[in-house]
Design a protein around this nucleic acid. Structure first.
Lengths: 212, 212
DNA sequence: TCTTGATTCAAACGAACGTTTGAATTATCT
DNA sequence: AGATAATTCAAACGTTCGTTTGAATCAAGA
């Protein structure tokens, strides 16, 4: 079975996800990872060559399906629209739902992934750089195009700015929800992800449409 | 002069800011910091006790004036409003401008600080935790209150959500501007911070006001 | 000028890190 | 079963880390 992942590899990936989300990249040692995964220390270098490659593989494992789902949803919307522009709210849903699905489907490990995303985005050690170029560039191009068709009054640059803003709303909300839970004294939580998605989409749609 | 900072202390803080922004917390060694600051290795432990305390001091040095400026601006607005609710756009400006001022005033070291903010926010090692509680709690409370007065149709929880969204727009935009510069192929940049501030405020104001 | 405290310095400490090695073990196929 | 490749394992490698130490240097008041 060439396409199913080796059991040891999978155990390492899972332990890495959990520990890195909890302690950060450099603060998570291979010794802690292999201890948690109950495998030998040298297994990491055997299966992934190096620690950096392991982290990249860990990020890629989650990111690739998400971006594929995003593009598939957008394809589906554009095919259904028969040449008409896809409504703004549906574009945003195609962009955000695949990420939230990971969270609600995978439970704690899904939430761990969101921490990782924020961590990887902020980390100066360019873990995400090769992934951004390979996995994100087509996604960014396609969604930018769809956005411009849905909001023809926006200039090219303005569309870029506002799409960046929308990404900020989403990333910050899901990745740093504990800050919100703190300042709201527990009143706002991510439990009902469907309601959160609706809130985010409404907020972003209003901001994107706005013409000051 | 008890209130002016020791020259060695200042050199260490400056070098730390620059290097941590470039390489991350754990990846920046005290040896690299002291070499860049042209001070002895032991000076860090002498002046700051420990590396973690140094990082906390570095974050605090920038964050405290910013939050003081935010609250001062809000005070000023509320005094000028004479009992009336402060307009939404002005609340947002009081919230965001002090951060952008650091960037435009201090140049490269200001931009470094924004990286640090995103880094510290995402870092699971709770560097920001004590600061969030001390420095941010009053700020969050005051701005939440002002927001509820400006937008009385929002419930308490809804106001918390949307203020969190607005923070996401701002933080993500300023801290990860290089992603936008990349996807927009250089068309969108942070150079004109006044225009960026205007864009962000307009986007957030529309999202905050919206009633889906 | 002498003394006292604050600061700097070179050197070393023990611990933890990522990685490598080579033998032992397990799985796969004829 | 026996040969061959894949995987696991304990042990060690060299490096780098944050921190400590104790003497040297500096600043300034008596």
């Amino acid at each position: 079975m060439p396409e199913t992942i080796h059991a040891t590899k999978l155990a390492i990936l899972r332990a890495t996800e959990r520990l890195v989300a909890a302690h950060g990249f450099e603060a998570t040692s291979l010794r802690a990872i292999t201890a948690a995964a109950k495998v030998n220390l040298a297994a990491v270098n055997y299966h992934f060559s190096t620690k950096d490659a392991l982290i990249l593989a860990m990020l890629n494992r989650r990111l690739r399906p998400i971006n594929e789902a995003r593009l598939a949803l957008l394809d589906q919307l554009e095919n259904g629209a028969a040449g008409e522009p896809v409504p703004l709210e549906e574009i945003l849903e195609a962009l955000f739902r695949p990420v939230l699905e990971v969270v609600s489907r995978r439970g704690k490990s899904g939430r761990d992934f969101l921490r990782l995303l924020a961590l990887a985005l902020a980390a100066p050690g360019a873990y995400l750089k090769p992934l951004v170029e390979k996995e994100f560039s087509e996604k960014a191009r396609r969604f930018h195009l769809a956005l411009r068709r849905a909001l023809p009054h926006l200039s090219d640059a303005e569309a870029h700015w506002r799409l960046h803003f929308a990404h900020g709303v989403f990333i910050h909300t899901v990745a740093h929800s504990e800050v919100l839970a703190c300042t709201s004294r527990g009143r706002c939580r991510l439990t009902d992800s469907e309601a959160v998605l609706r809130r985010i989409i409404d907020f972003c749609a209003a901001g994107l449409r706005q013409s000051a």
